[in-house]
Design a protein around this nucleic acid. Structure first.
Lengths: 298, 298
DNA sequence: CGATCTTACGGGATTCGTAAACATA
DNA sequence: TATGTTTACGAATCCCGTAAGATCG
């Protein structure tokens, strides 16, 4: 009728052993059952595969021609199945994540460490970039998912909120504004400001907040790396606006933090997923760990 | 438990249609049966292959990775099975035969024509050569079988007698020896002889016959092609010794044939098979036709 | 509410193992 | 005669189809 993988396996083993009895033994089968398998295969192919008498079993010409092809096929097949199982069992595979620099530097590292401890064979790759870049990487499926800010929703992407975040004013401890518990945007606008570059999500937030109050924003310095901003603050060159998630990294004695009294500086850090795309087991596992840890903190 | 080809087929079709119902339809299966197949495959792989709800069926990330690999495997598999069936059904394949020139020129051509009429898609290849060359070709499996003379048995080769053959004296019709019904070796030895080259089976027979009677053999001419020998006879240059099977080909008014009164000039034309090697279906079919026709003549 | 996937269950086909028969060196 | 394949047959398993249930748009 129809050729079956079990028959192929039986054929290959029998050919290797040149014996029904020993082959059946290896296949955990009774010898008559193996005879039936081989006969079925022969019938469905219409060819005799073995010349067999009670004393010897050897391949037919056709059998000899067929054997290597079927061996290769079965090997490939088993390899595919095995790799699928490996991936499912999280014993192989990879996760690639695109994240905002602040997240990549603070939230992710301990999570990666934990994930790798649980799944040592899975590679974890991190790419950092601004929000737009993250969206692009997710869109083109260059990463499994992204971690960005839910600022401008983009068609074809889904976001799942992870945690809240806000921009804090970073200033020298001896700054006169440190006297206040909270700062206002108007106070900030009068100071020399140290902001990140115009591409960044952080800068977008800042721009939006000042624009809402019709305040002019004239950064004294534009930097790419947050560590640079902290250095400038430390040197007394101005006040920086940096995300709370990231700042712990830069915590140093010579730094003071003050919240600013506007909700416009708040944002949500969110998972960015391509709509309708399901994750690989490895990525799914990472995502689950991620949300679990984040929920535990909240 | 174990992945089955039917499951793979079901997976591929379902993925192509993105619908259980339509896929089941194509597979000549009820839709619930297909659900079971897919579920079994998913369970044995440990991975969900489709994200499905009542309104849409789409591949999981893993499913999407698996699909092309499995499609290729299944295609290869079906191709191998199909080619085996084709060969078994004698709709493809080839037969290659090494034969003595006499046989290749007389016995084989009508058989080949008949065989090709029955099995138009099977290629038939003929190689001609002397007995030793035929044996070598069979030994190294360059041909399916040989048709030679059973003169010197060779280890590793089996011979099956096909038909008898003897060397006949070929002489001009006006030759004085034509008066006799049969010739003797002694009469021949006194004439200028036209023989084939020393490598040939025919020559081996002639040498052996003369040696048995302690007669000196001194060929006037040594030729490679039997047609040449006939030409020399026609020109009155001597008497040739040629196999009866081959001579009908050269039958011409200017030729007379006489048997020679020694059994030493008789030989058997025989199939030459490599011991323990089974034939391809095409070769087997040709062999069967060959023996059937030869037996019919006898 | 309608189309579609899933679950439940009974009947039929497939496949297994045991035991006996058969074949060859 | 001994080893190893084939045949026969009852039992367990697997697979299918029908029918009912669940779910999403």
């Amino acid at each position: 009728m129809n050729v079956n993988l079990r028959q192929v396996r039986a054929f290959i083993v029998t050919a290797r052993f040149a014996s029904f009895t020993r082959a059946a033994n290896l296949l955990n089968l009774s010898q008559p059952a193996l005879t039936v398998q081989i006969r079925q295969l022969e019938q469905s192919l219409g060819v005799r595969l073995f010349d067999r008498n009670t004393r010897s079993v050897e391949l037919t010409r056709v059998g000899r021609d067929l054997l290597p092809a079927l061996e290769r096929l079965l090997g490939d097949f088993d390899a595919v199945v095995e790799s699928a199982r490996e991936m499912a069992a999280l014993r192989s595979g990879s996760v690639s994540i695109a994240a905002l620099p602040s997240v990549a530097a603070t939230v992710l590292p301990p999570l990666i460490a934990e994930f790798r401890a649980a799944h040592p064979r899975i590679r974890v790759q991190i790419r950092d970039g601004v929000g737009r870049r993250i969206n692009a990487l997710v869109q083109e499926e260059a990463v499994d998912f992204g971690i960005g800010a839910d600022i401008e929703p983009e068609a074809g992407l889904e976001t799942v909120r992870l945690l809240g975040d806000e921009l804090l004013a970073v200033l020298p401890p001896d700054h006169r504004l440190c006297a206040a518990e909270r700062l206002t945007l108007e106070e900030l606008a009068a100071e020399p400001l140290i902001l990140t570059n115009p591409e960044s999500t952080v800068r977008y937030l800042a721009n939006r907040a000042f624009a809402e109050r019709n305040l002019l924003i004239a950064p004294a310095y534009e930097v790419t790396y947050m560590s640079t901003a902290v250095g400038l603050v430390r040197a007394g060159l101005g006040i920086a606006l940096l995300p709370s998630t990231a700042i712990e990294l830069s915590l140093a004695p010579a730094i003071a933090l003050r919240p600013v009294d506007t909700p416009a500086l708040r944002r949500s850090i969110a998972l960015v997923l391509k709509a309708g795309r399901s994750l690989s087991p490895a990525a799914q596992a990472f995502r689950e760990m991620l949300t679990a840890r984040v929920d535990a903190q909240a």
